[in-house]
């Protein structure tokens, strides 16, 4: 069966907090079906608010976020076809890895045998089989995030929203998690939005980068690098990182010369 993935479409999304403070101002862009778009920008630029509106955790003051089906019509939005991974792993401390990964299926009413089987599949694919009986407190920060990423896959979602999943780990673990995010994206084939602070992470993972500042979009940039050229030490990769870095610095009004 061919999956019909949706396009995630932000249409003039604004979010105004009390006191008239704009968190987002007329933000419009689309994440193509099956694509991975990274949203980068300095702290407080509205990235996370944008993701929370896409997840349905906050309302846009004006504008809308829509899932559009391949035929151009509305795409049914359900908790099973949209998965979110937050900055913190958000695992239940009294449940082991398997039961944490199986939780979304449990909440969807899937039978115990089926949800454990599906959870074990994604745990094995993430290379976490040896840790499946462990509690979150017995895992490192990086492993906890890998469990959280595995949990996003267990419902086979069509849309993945990743909110700085690597923000709380060291550089080496970040690179490992980037590979895991890439694997998760490839396995799920989902339309993916990644919020990140890291330009190199955005360039390495995304096919489109949205540079934001002060609640507005500064630039939408296609990453032209072919997948096999995304070597972190290659000249083409470093050039792309520098270009995006300059765009970000320009948006934030920072002089880089």
């Amino acid at each position: 069966m061919i999956r019909k993935l949706p396009t995630l479409d932000f249409q003039s999304v604004s979010r105004i907090f009390s006191g008239g403070v704009y968190a987002l101002k007329e933000v419009s862009f689309s994440i193509p079906a099956g694509g991975l778009t990274a949203v980068i920008g300095p702290s407080g630029c509205g990235k996370t608010t944008l993701l929370r509106i896409a997840a349905g955790l906050e309302r846009a003051t004006t504008g809308s976020v829509k899932l559009i089906g391949p035929d151009g019509g509305a795409y049914e939005r359900a908790s099973e076809n949209l998965s979110v991974c937050f900055q913190d792993a958000r695992l239940l401390p009294w449940r082991n890895v398997t039961d944490n990964v199986a939780l979304p299926l449990e909440l969807a009413g899937v039978s115990r045998n089926e949800r454990i089987a599906r959870a074990n599949q994604v745990i094995a694919a993430a290379g976490l089989s040896s840790a499946q009986a462990r509690l979150p407190a017995q895992l490192s920060g990086g492993m906890r995030m890998r469990v959280a990423l595995a949990r996003t896959l267990v419902t086979s979602p069509d849309v993945l929203l990743l909110d700085e999943p690597c923000s709380a780990v060291d550089e080496f673990t970040r690179m490992q998690l980037d590979e895991e995010i890439f694997r998760v994206w490839q396995v799920s084939g989902a339309t993916t939005m990644l919020i990140t602070h890291s330009v190199s992470e955005a360039v390495w993972l995304a096919d489109q980068i949205v540079v934001m500042n002060m609640g507005s979009i500064h630039e939408i940039r296609k990453v032209a690098l072919p997948r096999n050229a995304r070597n972190r030490t290659s000249a083409a990769f470093l050039l792309e990182v520098e270009t995006v870095m300059r765009s970000l610095a320009c948006a934030a009004g920072v002089v880089v010369e």
């Binding site: 349905g56 908790s79 937050f86 913190d88 958000r90 939780l103 909440l107 969807a108």
Partner: peptide, 13 residues
């Protein structure tokens, strides 16, 4: 933890 509450909210619990 409000984050865990949000997780349950997201999954329609």
């Amino acid at each position: 933890d409000p984050g865990l509450r949000e997780f349950f909210l997201l999954h329609g619990a």
